[in-house]
Design a protein around this nucleic acid. Structure first.
Lengths: 120, 120
DNA sequence: TTTCATAGTATCCTTTTTGTAACTGGTATC
DNA sequence: GATACCAGTTACAAAAAGGATACTATGAAA
């Protein structure tokens, strides 16, 4: 079978792929982060909007956004509006996740199509 | 901001991206599935091997493999060997996940590189 | 003054996930 | 027979994730 181009030689199989995937999952794993990012790709959004859009409770949303902010994927901007509003937007760095998001988007679509096939 | 090509018109933002991502996460979300698939891309492997390779306990591994098998991503083959061995291998369908896995692999590598940057 | 909207936080609870350790059953080896 | 390896399963525990509800604080509108 095809081996990956692996710089470090070791035990039996290169650990880099496994590690890389795990690193990625550490940052955008879980139920919500990629969903939130994919929603924010349509443009910045306020807290409540995002909450409604993603159908996620404030508590979880708050936590997820903090984590995304910590990892430099999202910015939080407080606006001087009538009731103070807060805008969340993607950072340029988050663009590096485009491939991942697009790939998952495409796969999800195709998979649904496949699963929906009439009793094949 | 750019809108996605959306067939169904609705509330405010197209739900298809969100749904597609969630569909994907339903199948390969969680801590292990993508890791296991990425390991199996190097070739079929037996239960214990996989357990050691991924550093995952038999209980979890068993459950994850069952779910992957249910979703048509992995095959389970019992071999008539001295002590019975069981081989797990990827299905052709799992190849459709290549883009996702490669994208996550690349991103994880790049992200680690970025995070490791000496006190930038 | 009461009410509503904003952006969260606090509290409590349930569900899901993950892990550990021990154990089954089969075959082979010592 | 005792031991060891394989592929799991079972029972139990711990932790993480997720969710519901209520609440804070601010300011504007009714």
């Amino acid at each position: 079978m095809k081996k990956h181009n692996c710089i470090v030689g070791d035990e039996s199989v290169c650990p880099k792929v496994k590690l890389s995937i795990q690193d990625t999952l550490d940052v955008v794993g879980g139920k919500w982060k990629l969903v939130l990012i994919s929603i924010l790709r349509d443009g910045k959004m306020r807290f409540r909007e995002l909450s409604r859009e993603a159908d996620i409770s404030p508590r979880i949303l708050s936590k997820e956004l903090q984590e995304l902010e910590m990892n430099g994927l999202v910015t939080r901007t407080v606006c001087n509006t009538k009731p103070v509003t807060v805008e969340y937007a993607l950072t340029p760095y988050s663009d590096t996740l485009s491939e991942v998001i697009i790939a998952m988007h495409k796969w999800g679509q195709e998979h649904r199509r496949k699963v929906m096939e009439p009793s094949l």
